[in-house]
Amino acid sequence: EWSVQQVSHWLMSLNLEQYVSEFSAQNITGEQLLQLDGNKLKALGMTASQDRAVVKKKLKEMK
């Protein structure tokens, strides 16, 4: 059960800090993070497919 802050730290740990402000603005918590798919990541401004791939891979490892 991650807070928005913990999601931000997680993104930073993946060197994806450029997305922290948008994820925070949308109040993405750990629970919501686990529901994100490629389209939702795109909607959050994650347009680079490599970045989405990293996030999806890491989320899969956490589930």
Rank of each mutant, 00 (worst) to 15 (best):
E1D: 14
E1W: 09
E1V: 04
E1P: 04
E1I: 09
E1L: 10
W2E: 07
W2G: 05
W2H: 03
W2R: 05
W2F: 06
S3I: 03
S3A: 01
S3W: 02
S3R: 02
S3C: 03
V4Y: 10
V4D: 02
V4I: 10
V4E: 10
Q5M: 13
Q5T: 12
Q5E: 14
Q5A: 15
Q5R: 09
Q5L: 12
Q5G: 09
Q6L: 02
Q6I: 00
Q6Y: 00
V7P: 01
V7N: 07
V7A: 00
V7I: 08
V7L: 01
V7T: 01
S8R: 08
S8W: 04
H9D: 15
H9T: 13
H9L: 11
H9G: 09
H9N: 15
W10K: 06
L11W: 00
L11H: 00
L11G: 00
L11A: 02
L11E: 01
M12N: 13
M12T: 14
M12S: 13
M12H: 11
S13W: 00
S13N: 07
S13L: 08
S13I: 02
S13Y: 02
S13V: 05
L14F: 06
L14H: 07
L14Y: 02
L14P: 00
L14T: 03
L14M: 11
L14C: 08
L14D: 00
N15K: 12
N15A: 05
N15I: 00
N15R: 09
N15S: 10
L16G: 02
L16N: 02
L16P: 00
L16C: 03
L16M: 14
L16H: 03
L16D: 00
L16Q: 03
E17K: 11
E17P: 07
E17Q: 11
Q18W: 03
Q18H: 07
Q18G: 10
Y19S: 10
Y19W: 02
V20M: 08
V20S: 12
V20R: 08
V20I: 13
V20P: 10
V20N: 10
S21F: 05
S21T: 14
S21L: 10
S21A: 14
S21Y: 05
S21M: 09
E22N: 11
E22V: 11
E22F: 01
E22C: 08
E22T: 13
E22S: 14
E22A: 14
F23G: 04
F23N: 06
F23K: 04
S24T: 14
S24Q: 15
S24Y: 11
S24I: 15
S24D: 09
S24W: 07
S24H: 12
S24L: 13
S24E: 15
A25G: 08
A25M: 11
A25S: 13
Q26L: 03
Q26A: 12
N27I: 01
N27A: 09
N27E: 12
N27G: 15
I28L: 04
I28H: 07
I28A: 05
I28D: 06
I28K: 04
I28Q: 04
I28M: 05
T29M: 04
T29E: 08
T29F: 01
T29W: 02
T29H: 04
T29G: 12
G30C: 00
G30Y: 06
G30D: 06
G30S: 03
G30I: 03
G30A: 06
E31F: 03
E31H: 06
E31R: 13
E31T: 09
E31M: 08
Q32R: 14
Q32D: 13
Q32A: 13
L33P: 05
L33K: 06
L33H: 03
L33N: 06
L34A: 07
L34Q: 07
L34T: 07
L34N: 06
Q35L: 11
Q35D: 13
Q35M: 09
Q35G: 11
Q35Y: 02
L36A: 09
L36Q: 07
L36R: 02
L36Y: 08
L36H: 04
D37C: 06
D37S: 10
D37V: 01
D37W: 00
D37P: 06
D37I: 00
G38H: 09
G38C: 13
G38M: 08
G38Y: 04
G38F: 01
N39T: 13
N39V: 12
N39R: 14
N39M: 11
N39D: 14
K40D: 11
K40H: 08
K40W: 02
K40A: 13
K40R: 13
K40E: 09
K40S: 10
L41F: 02
L41Y: 02
L41I: 05
L41S: 06
L41P: 05
L41M: 12
K42Q: 12
K42W: 04
K42R: 12
A43C: 10
A43E: 14
A43T: 11
A43I: 08
A43Y: 03
L44D: 07
L44M: 09
L44C: 02
L44N: 05
L44T: 03
G45H: 00
G45M: 01
G45R: 02
G45A: 01
G45W: 00
M46C: 05
M46V: 14
T47A: 09
T47E: 13
T47N: 09
T47Y: 10
A48R: 14
A48I: 06
A48F: 09
S49Y: 10
S49P: 15
S49W: 14
S49A: 15
S49M: 09
Q50I: 09
Q50C: 13
Q50F: 07
Q50P: 09
Q50S: 13
Q50G: 12
D51I: 00
D51G: 01
D51P: 02
D51Q: 00
D51Y: 03
D51W: 02
D51L: 00
R52C: 05
R52Y: 05
R52H: 06
R52Q: 13
R52G: 03
A53I: 10
A53P: 03
A53S: 11
A53E: 14
A53M: 13
A53N: 11
V54P: 01
V54Y: 02
V54I: 13
V55K: 02
V55Q: 02
V55D: 03
K56F: 15
K56G: 08
K56Q: 13
K56L: 15
K56D: 11
K57Q: 14
K58N: 10
K58A: 15
K58L: 08
K58P: 02
K58E: 14
K58Y: 09
L59H: 07
L59W: 04
K60D: 14
K60L: 13
K60Y: 12
K60A: 15
K60V: 12
K60Q: 13
E61P: 01
E61L: 07
E61S: 07
E61C: 06
E61T: 08
E61Y: 06
M62I: 13
M62S: 03
M62H: 02
M62G: 04
M62C: 07
M62K: 05
K63N: 11
K63G: 10
